[in-house]
Simulated scan of single mutants.
Amino acid sequence: MHQPYPVLHQDVNLIQKDLSGMSGSDEGWTLVYWDVCPGRAEFLRLLFEEAGVLYTEVNDRDIIIKDVIKGEGGLYPHFAPPVIKKGKFSLSQTHVASRYLAGKFGLLPIDEEEAAHAEQVNLTCHDYIAEGRLAFHGIYPTGPYATQKETTQPYIDRFLESRLPRWLQYFERLLKSKDDGKGFVVGKSLSYADLGLLHVLRATEAQFPAAWEAEDVPALKAFKKRIEARPKLAAYLTSSRCQPFSGDSMM
């Protein structure tokens, strides 16, 4: 009934009016998010794609407002998307959902200390993308960028001048702390921390191409190319399923 990817923006409301019907134990994964940009859901898409796990994406605004925002869909209560769902289980908060899927898909380090470091890095990636986004919404954090372009420009300039370099230099130092920056963030194999870092680096390059080009972070740039070249990720990133960044807040 529900067609998994590779269909981009599967409009599930064409075949049902809410998420409640997607509760059978044999159902696959569903990812619920707005269809306007990659946004926070991209952290989760990269996990599905790298793991080769099929998923259906629900982007219908009416369904999201009714079932997630207003909580009328019988789901565990959520504040906002993205939400992942399988059978009767649903989960939000992107970092929490990322870590959960990583455990399911073999992308969570087994070693306890490495798992803790992976969580540290992933949360840092979320802090970075959140700060970058906020610069574009400095006057009204939940309002659209289009309504505050002039007034929030000083916040963007400050982020670009002083904060973005600090973030990138930290990530560069992080990578070079082991294997001379030629390996993975944690341990000897790819984890969800690598995918989180890939996402924020792609967002940085898309939003601030000149700054990304000028910043002296050779290990980061090589890491980005190396992870993007992984077969399943390369197929996704070059497909029509991969949405372009919106260009107005690293989302």
Rank of each mutant, 00 (worst) to 15 (best):
L175K: 12
G183W: 08
N59I: 15
Y140L: 04
L101Y: 13
R173V: 00
L195G: 06
G71S: 10
D111L: 11
A135R: 02
A234Q: 12
S25Q: 09
P209E: 01
R230P: 03
W34I: 00
L168I: 07
F48S: 09
E114C: 05
Y236W: 08
K178W: 00
D248M: 00
F43E: 02
T56C: 10
S23D: 07
V217C: 07
I65V: 15
N122M: 12
D62G: 15
A210M: 00
T142Q: 10
F79T: 02
Q16V: 13
S162Y: 04
Y170K: 12
I110S: 15
E50H: 15
I64Y: 09
K86S: 02
S177W: 01
L31N: 03
D248K: 00
G132K: 04
T151K: 12
F159Q: 03
L31A: 04
R40A: 13
T30A: 06
G28K: 05
Q148Y: 05
F105A: 10
V58H: 02
S240G: 08
V217F: 00
D111I: 11
R99C: 08
T238Q: 12
F89C: 00
V53R: 03
Q153K: 10
G103Q: 05
V58L: 06
V96D: 14
K178N: 10
Q3Y: 12
K86M: 06
K224Y: 01
L47K: 10
F43R: 12
L237R: 01
F171L: 04
A210P: 01
G132P: 09
D127R: 05
L134S: 07
T204I: 06
L198F: 14
S249A: 10
I129V: 14
E228M: 11
C125V: 14
I227T: 09
H117L: 15
T142E: 14
T30L: 14
S92A: 14
A203C: 04
I139N: 05
Q16R: 13
G138T: 02
F208D: 00
C242D: 03
Q207W: 10
M251C: 13
I110N: 15
Q93P: 02
Q148M: 03
